[in-house]
Each structure stands twice: as C-alpha cells, then as structure tokens.
Design a protein around this nucleic acid. Structure first.
Lengths: 138, 138
DNA sequence: ATAAAGCTTAGAGTACACTCTAAGGTCAAC
DNA sequence: GTTGACCTTAGAGTGTACTCTAAGCTTTAT
C-alpha cells in the first residue's frame, strides 16, 4: 500500500491532484488508516496510470469517469449500451488519429523540405505546408 | 471579405471567440471598416480552420501561436531553429498517435469481444481490456 | 522532546478558453 | 424615422482542472 505522497511521486503528480480526483469521484483511496491517512493499492496505481494517459490523449475527467465505469453491470447497463458507448468513443479516437496523421504529414513536409536547398521559405509556414500536403493527398 | 458574424457562422464559432483570438494575438481582422467593423479575407478563414483543427488535436492556443509563427524569418529564426522546433512538435504528434492507437486497440477489444458469447464481463472494463491489449502486443 | 516531514480538511486562488453583459454606435428594411 | 439585426468596447462571469493557503494532527529522526 502506498501513502498519498508515495503514490504521487511514483506518478509524478501532486498530492493535491490525487485528493482532487477523489473529491470528483475518479479515484478514492483504497482504504484509510486509523489516523485518517489515505492508502492506495496496486489497482489504484493502475487506474491512475490510465487516467494520466487518457488525459494526455485529450479526454476530460468526466469522459474518463465514463470510460472507467464501462462495465457490463447487469442491473444498470445492458451489453448493447456498453457496446454503443464504446463504439462512439472508438469513432472519436479514429477521427483524432486521422487528424493527427494529417498534421504529422504537414510537419514532416516542414522538417524535410523547408530547409532543404535554397532558403526560399516557400513551404516554411504551417499553412503552406498544410495546403501542400492536402494537394499531395488529393 | 467577411464580417465577423459571417466568418463566425462559416466556422461554427462565436463572434466572441474571434474577438478573443484577436485579443490574444492569434488572428487579427484583415482590416477594419470606417465604422470600426472587422473584416476578414480568405486567408483569415484558412488560419481559423487551422486553429480549430489544431485545437481539436489538443494544442493550446499558445502552442498554436508558435505553430503559426513557424517561418524562416531570417532576421529572427534560423532554419535550424525552425527545424528543431518542428521536429519536437512532430515527436509530440507521433507519441500522441501511438497512445491513441493503443487506446484504440483496447476499445476495439471491448467492442468486439466484450459482448460476444456469455456475459461474463471478463474483458468488459477499460482497464482489463488495456491489460489485455498490452499482453497481445508483447 | 522537539523539529521536520508528511498527513488531514476547508476553502481561496490561478490559468486557460471562452461566454456573457452592459452601454452604445451602424445599417438595411418597412 | 424607427425597429431590429448587426457591430463596437470594457469588463465581469463560467467551467475545468488544478494549485495553494491555513490551521492543525501524526510520524520519523535526532
């Protein structure tokens, strides 16, 4: 079991952040000591790692909450519900990947071509690079 | 030339947002009428489309500002500077794509396998699906 | 035994990116 | 000529996600 400071250090987040997530129902301490101290187990660590990654990808804490509560919880959510919710998130992720790949294309153009021969600065702005990559992809 | 309301509608943003971006040096009106009205040309439209896409990808307005000012501006930035800045952004984008693909894998696992035969809910949480996708990728 | 480091809470403050309000000027249509 | 839709500014308010402060209790080291 980790104390809050240990977990925070392991994850490179602040103890405030961990308390903030508890307050906002993302992750509670696994248990509390007699002194009131929070204690976290390995699963809590994994959940936090997930939260950090999902945040990095661009999900809000609310969305992450939804993602964490994906479970076929017979009482509340049917399998079909879970499936359609997940499919929706999957569509979002696919769109984002496509956008990022387009962006990547224009950045690569910038890195490769921009400073090639003469410094003509022709494709040396993001905008002209983007137009160029769009033209190539057509 | 577009008036602010026309441009806003074309882009599905608010006029407030356009004024906010002007205030924060992302995009000024192309010109002003005698009455003080803002006017925007086609390039402004393209810049706004870029801003909107970059925001969707997860860049902050500050980062977008940096991206927009990538230019081999001989006085201020050397070609090498531009190249290393752009390469850095490219690395960020590649990392994000990798993360999204990992995420995508676990969501697909959830959609495909989770509600397959018996409702055992074994891989029916994001966390177990992620562990599973990591095990597969090893 | 006492100081330093770590934990608790409640609540205030911050940064970002808008979003809204108030007070007023402009312009096209009836 | 006035109504209504549009524009202007300055400044206040909102939601998200922290981040910090204050006051106090606990644990560890000397």
């Amino acid at each position: 079991m980790y104390r809050i400071g240990e977990l925070a250090q392991k994850l490179s987040v602040s103890t405030d952040t961990l308390r903030y997530y508890e307050k906002h129902k993302l992750l509670s301490a696994t248990s509390r000591g007699d002194n009131g101290y929070r204690f976290y187990n390995e699963e809590a660590l994994k959940i936090m790692q997930f939260i950090i990654r999902a945040k990095g990808i661009g999900f809000s804490l609310n969305e992450i909450n939804d993602l964490l509560s994906i479970k076929v919880d017979k009482a509340r959510h049917s399998c079909a519900d879970v499936k359609s919710f997940t499919q929706h998130k999957l569509d979002q992720v696919n769109n984002k990947i496509a956008e990022l790949n387009r962006f990547k294309g224009s950045l690569e153009l910038l890195v490769d071509a921009c400073c090639g021969g003469e410094e003509q600065a022709i494709h040396c702005s993001i905008l002209s690079a983007l137009e160029n990559v769009d033209a190539i992809n057509k």
